[in-house]
Design a binder for these strands. Sequence first.
RNA 1: GCCAAAAUAGCUCAGCGGUAGAGCAGCGCACUCGUAAUGCGCAGGUCGUGGGUUCAAUUCCCACUUUUGGCUCCA
Length: 651
Amino acid sequence: MRVFFPDGGSREFPEGTTALDAAASISRSLASKALAARVDGVVTGLSEPLRDGVRLEVLGFDSPEGREVLRHSASHLLASAVLHLYPGARFGVGPAIEDGFYYDMDIPGFPGSSALEAIEAEMHRQAAESIRFERIEVGIDEARRVMTDLGQAYKLELLDEIAAAGESVTLYRCGAFTDLCRGPHVPTTAFLKHFRLTSVAGAYWRGDEKREMLTRIYGTVFDSSKALADHLAMLEEARKRDHRKLGPELGLFTTGNEGGCGLIYWLPNGTIVREELENLWKAAHRRNGYNLVSTPHIAPASLWETSGHCSYYRDNMYFMPVDETEYVLKPMNCPGHILIYKSEKRSYRELPFRLAELGTVYRYEKSGVLHGLMRVRGFTVDDGHIFCTPDQIVDEIRKVVSFALYFLQVFGFGYAIELSLSDPDDMGHYAGSPEMWARVEPALADALDGMGEKYRTVRGEAAFYGPKIDIKLRDALGRYWQGPTIQFDFNIPERFDLTYTGPDGGEHRIYMVHRALFGSVERFTGNLIEHFAGNFPGWLAPLQVVILPLTVQQHERAAEVCGMLADRGFRCSVDRRNETIGYRIRAAESRKVPMMLVIGEREAGSGRVAVRAHGRGDLGVFELEEAVGLIEEACRRPALPEGGRSLSEIP
RNA sequence: GCCAAAAUAGCUCAGCGGUAGAGCAGCGCACUCGUAAUGCGCAGGUCGUGGGUUCAAUUCCCACUUUUGGCUCCA
């Protein structure tokens, strides 16, 4: 039989040749890298016999499919090891995921994470035995019989669903462990060498909090010990950058315990970072035509009934009595901004009308989801609401997206844009008329297209009140975080009956956009801490310059220099501790102070300073004014967005 | 909220039935120093909180609080 290869060539093989045989006949290295095959476009196992005339592509760890097969097989090996150590174990699902795999299991007598080492050792033992992954095609009834015999209730439940689709199924047997599985798998457990179990967690069966909680064991697997080591090193690097570790270490914030969980206490250093961020934010917003406003933290519940929050957001809201009336601690800023919009009759001449506020909101979040600065119960949304006519939508969206990108570029984040649209088969449950949706959804896409931005369209991911654009920011370690979000709202303008007077003298329904560019100041700061690993750019650094007199003889000169820098607006201090220069340099480096000025006898006498930059080392001796120039350069605040717009004209 | 793990000095951790120990940070003294840790000394803890078991609990048990990893949810 003849097999064709991706390079266009082909080769003759005897009947019964497998993909692995074919790979081995081409080169030893290809065979050694092979994890799976693509046969006529379909991913299959390497042990499957090939048919005459197929196109064969060998998949290694460098392909997404190859990685997935290896990870998936590792999850089976994990299950097999668990079954060996805990014979009554019952199995849920065990898929490959980004960076690794997991398996959800009901493990009788499972002692917790202390068992990981033993399970991993058992996995290595089975891997060394080169146990075959055996593919078995069976009918549904046969599969049911096998799983009933094995006592695998969860698998039977899965089979019921597959049976509804009416197919035959495949089982994979690997030694004593037989699993219901679509496959494919690597040929034997010997392909699994470089893995590590990483954590244990609870996971609801089928992700349903009403169902039983299974034990989920996570692991990761690679095709070489180096790749595994690199991955573990990357995790280690991420741990070092963890904002929950760096935050208290650098005196940025503290949280939890007596302070209440999910609530942030900004320490003096953190407050400086926050203030610099907020100052940039405010200046940039004024420049881009936003009216900055401020709204109260509490408001009568009736306001939140009008907005609809009391019915659909109740579980996340804090209520409190004031006199005889029930009040709500605000979970969002929109109703406040709406009252400001409604405070007078609005003309089309003042549109688009843009409001913005650094609005602190409080939301009840389940205790288990709280996480450092990223997920809290009190946070500040850099909220903005744009009120405009239907004609202005495309332009406004474009402006907001480019405004969001301005901030990402200031901090050096990469990004990925997602456009979330309605589900056309289910228009019934959305607020607003289908005509409004039909008008706005293409407008969002137009705006992105017009800017030349790449984006991913996700059907059915829109909020019930409107479509949205989400921007994921990519940090220095390549991790993605939810960043700016731009959401259309067809719901609130109707609920509050928001209108403007058009040129025709009639009242028209206003169009409204919610947008947050940082998302929340807390979360964004957390992202920044991790992105920069605590090494803030000069303008954000809590302390910008440390002056280090070499001995007590230079204390006076150091104080002079410090006073001069402070007069010029720099955050600086003198480290006059009775310690060696090496000790104090080390202290300043660990505090990640961007600039250090060393003043010894030589400098003090000549009006010069020795300059050292964080992470870069000694830069040499400079005239004081030159040194100030270097500091200015290191601490320069970012430029405001270009093409600033003035406020809308007030007629 | 649920599953699992954890909480000892400001930080990182040891001790695990007989009422606590180190390193770093802090303070003091000496040294007066040239680009990431000078030496010596001092001080610092109702061992997260509250119950229980015990002659005796930081140690064992229970509850609560907080944290961590996930699930569900989300800025």
